[in-house]
Design a binder for these strands. Structure first.
Lengths: 125, 125, 125, 125
DNA sequence: GTGGTCTAGACCACT
DNA sequence: GTGGTCTAGACCACG
C-alpha cells in the first residue's frame, strides 16, 4: 500500500489520504475485508499528526468505504452506501467542460476514461 | 447567464463562480468574444463582495478562459492555454474510482459521460 | 513604423505605445529628427482614444525621447536627458535575478543581451 | 531579510514584496528550503494589510518560487517552473533599448550586467 | 464606468 | 498559530 502525500498541495492532507485509499480500493490494491494500517502507523509513515489520519478514516467510514471495528481496527468494506449524488454529477460535468475547452473531443475523452477503467480492472485479482 | 451560488458549500465562492463560468463557456451559454458582466454587476447579483468576484475573474484570466480588455470589461477568450495536467488526470481517476466502487460499470459511466457531452454540444449554436 | 498593441495586456496602452516608440528609436526604425505621426493619426491606427496617445507622447517628451514642436508636431530627439536611474538599475537587477533562478548562466545571459544589441545595431543606417 | 517598500511608488505593494523576495532568493539572502516569515509577521513589519502580503505570497507560489507547506508556513522552493517567456524577452529588449539611447555601449552594458551577476553569486554560501 | 489595489477588521479549515 | 477566504467600504489609474 504505497501512498504519496504532497504537502505543498492545496488539497488537505486528510483528503489526500482519503482519496488515495479510495483509489487503492478501486484498483484492487486494497481488498474488501482487508485490514487497514492503524491510525498511528499511517501517521508515522507520512509524518503527519494522528488527528489528520483520524479525520481521513472518519470520512471514509462515514462514506461507507471502510468499517471501523473497535477491537481489530479498520477494514475495507464490501460495498459503500451513497450512490451518485448531484455533487458528483457537478464535478464530472466540470471536468468534462474543462476537457472540451482544451480541445479534447468526446471520442478522445471516452477513450481516456476507458483506459483508466482498464487500469483499475487490470490489477484486480 | 443563470448562475447559482451555494453559500453553504465548502467550495469557496470565487471557485464556484469560476466553475460556473467555465461550464457556461463549455455549454455555449457564453460565446467566445461575448462580454461578461462587470465585477460589480455580478457581485450585486450574487450578493457578494466585489473582491470575491474579482478573484474569480483573476483566476479565469490566469487560466486563459477570459481576457480583460482594458477598455471594456472582460470577455470570453477563444481557446484557453494550459492543456491536460497530471492534476487533472488525478481528479478524473478519483472520480472514476468512486463511480466503480458505487457499482457503476464502465459501459454505464462512458454512456453517462457521453450524455453530458451531448448536452454541451446540443446547446452550441 | 509598425506598432503592435495588446489590449489584453496588463501594461497600460499608453505605456505600450511609449515602449514601442522607444524601441523603434533604438533599433533605427525611427531616425533622430524624423517626424512622428500626429496624435490623431496614431489614435485612429490603433483604434484608441486620442487621450491615450497624447499621454504616451507627453511621457516621451518628458523623458526627452521626442521633441514637441507646436507647429510641426512631434519629432525624434537627438539624445534624451535622464541617465541611468536607481529605478532602472532595480529593474535590471530583477530581470537578472529571475533569469538566474530559471537556471540561466551568466554567460548565456550576456550572450543573449549581446544578440539583442546586435539586432538593434544591425538595422541602424 | 531586509526588505524596503516604497509606498509612493506606482508599483503595487504586493508586486514590490514579490520582487524583493525573488531578488532575495537570487542573491542568496533566502536559501532554498528556508522558511519565509508568516503573512502576519511580514504585514506587521511593513505596516500593510495581511491581504496585501497574501497576494504577494499567492503570486510567488503560482510562479513556483515558494511552496506553502500546509503544516508550517511558506518556504523557498528549489527551482521555479516557467522558463523564459516572450514577455520576459520584451522587457529585456526594452531595457536594452533605453540603455542604448542613454549612450551606453554594448560593452558597458554587458559589464554592468556581469557586475550584478557577480553580486548575486558573491553572497552565495 | 471599468478593473486593480488596498484597508481594517473577521471567521474558518487545517495541523 | 498558519494560510485561505470573505466583507464593506474606499481610492486610483485607465480609457
Amino acid at each position: 500500500m504505497l501512498i504519496q502525500i504532497d504537502f505543498s498541495s492545496e488539497i488537505p492532507i486528510y483528503q489526500q489520504i482519503r482519496n488515495e485509499i479510495v483509489m487503492g480500493i478501486a484498483d484492487g490494491r486494497l481488498q474488501p475485508g482487508e485490514k487497514l494500517p492503524t491510525i498511528r502507523a499511517l501517521a508515522d509513515e507520512f509524518g503527519v499528526n494522528t488527528m489528520t489520519v483520524n479525520k481521513a478514516y472518519a470520512l471514509l467510514k462515514q462514506e461507507g468505504y471502510i468499517i471501523a471495528d473497535r477491537r481489530a481496527g479498520a477494514s475495507v468494506a464490501g460495498t459503500p452506501k451513497g450512490g451518485i449524488t448531484t455533487e458528483y454529477a457537478q464535478q464530472l460535468r466540470l471536468l468534462i467542460s474543462e476537457a472540451k475547452l482544451q480541445g479534447i473531443t468526446q471520442e478522445e475523452f471516452l477513450h481516456y476514461c476507458a483506459t483508466i477503467f482498464q487500469e483499475l480492472e487490470g490489477t484486480q485479482p
